[in-house]
């Protein structure tokens, strides 16, 4: 009979419509509140609509997720070499980068003028980067990794979209937190939790390598933890001073408004 096909199709839409509410009822009010149903709602057993309420709940990205790259550095309270870059400026990432978005300046010893295994400057233009992950894949020192922070939208690109070394550098602890399994696999391949060169040197001299990454060792040592926290607080305070704060933005806005008002008053005065 003519029209049955359409009715069948409408049946499917009706099923979808009902399933959404079946799920709502099944989870009660917890559907959008609780953490526990998220996995089911976003999984294969989900029926009906399954919207992620983005700013209020975000799908955590998987471990292998690739966004723009960052550089791994030691933690600021690392006992051996605090804040040291893992990067040795060997240049493989810059050579393998398909769109050529990496610029590296190799540093030289000021006295002997021989290359020092640490970059003097490091730039990544994220307006060219294609997030392919080759730099991380081919880095022999596990020093450049793909970041998970995708919330990078900006009102201006001239100043902010070329990431320089301070902006790129993130402590190993951060890397471990975003990708624990991969980090552990890599550490096993390296033979320890430190930089491959450090491990090599330590093995040569017979010194023991770290059994755990430094931030874990530090967590076990309350004194070191306190020291690290104080340092972090000081750093945060310094960062808060240096960068533009909410108050600065408000003040700037106020100034702009005052300026426009003054202009308008001048205009009004002229009119009169």
């Amino acid at each position: 009979m003519n029209g049955t096909g359409i009715l069948k199709g409408l049946g499917v839409t009706l099923k979808h419509f009902i399933q959404t509410y079946v799920d709502d009822i099944r989870y009660g009010g917890r559907k959008y509140l609780g953490m526990e149903n998220f996995e089911v709602r976003q999984g294969l057993k989900a029926q009906g609509a399954f919207t992620v309420q983005y700013p209020d709940e975000k799908i955590a990205v998987p471990e292998r997720f690739r966004f723009v790259p960052f550089l791994v550095v030691n933690e600021d309270d690392h006992p051996d070499a605090p804040g040291k870059d893992w990067c040795t400026s060997c240049g493989i990432c810059a050579k393998v980068c398909p769109p050529q978005c990496i610029w590296i300046v190799r540093s030289e010893d000021p006295v002997t003028k021989r290359p020092v295994p640490e970059p003097e400057a490091f730039f990544i233009d994220i307006d060219i980067c294609m997030n392919c992950g080759y730099c991380a894949e081919f880095c022999p020192f596990d020093a450049i990794k793909m970041d998970h922070d995708y919330e990078l939208a900006d009102f201006d690109r001239t100043g902010t979209h070329i990431h320089d070394k301070p902006k790129l550098s993130k402590p190993y602890e951060y890397y471990y937190n975003i990708a624990p399994t991969t980090a552990a696999e890599e550490a096993q391949a390296r033979g320890g939790w430190e930089h491959p060169d450090v491990i090599k040197a330590k093995k040569k001299s017979g010194e023991p390598v770290m059994e755990q990454p430094w931030f874990m060792l530090r967590a076990e040592d309350p004194e070191a933890r306190a020291r690290a926290e104080a340092e972090r607080a000081a750093k945060a305070a310094a960062a808060a001073e240096s960068t533009v704060s909410e108050a600065d933005i408000a003040a700037e806005r106020q100034a702009r408004r005052a300026e426009a008002l003054a202009r308008h008053r001048a205009w009004a005065a002229k009119k009169n």
Partner: peptide, 16 residues
């Protein structure tokens, strides 16, 4: 007015 980096930005990045 606004730049969203990424290649491509994920839906969540776009919403941000």
């Amino acid at each position: 007015d606004v730049y969203v980096p990424g290649c491509p930005p994920t839906p969540q990045a776009l919403m941000y």
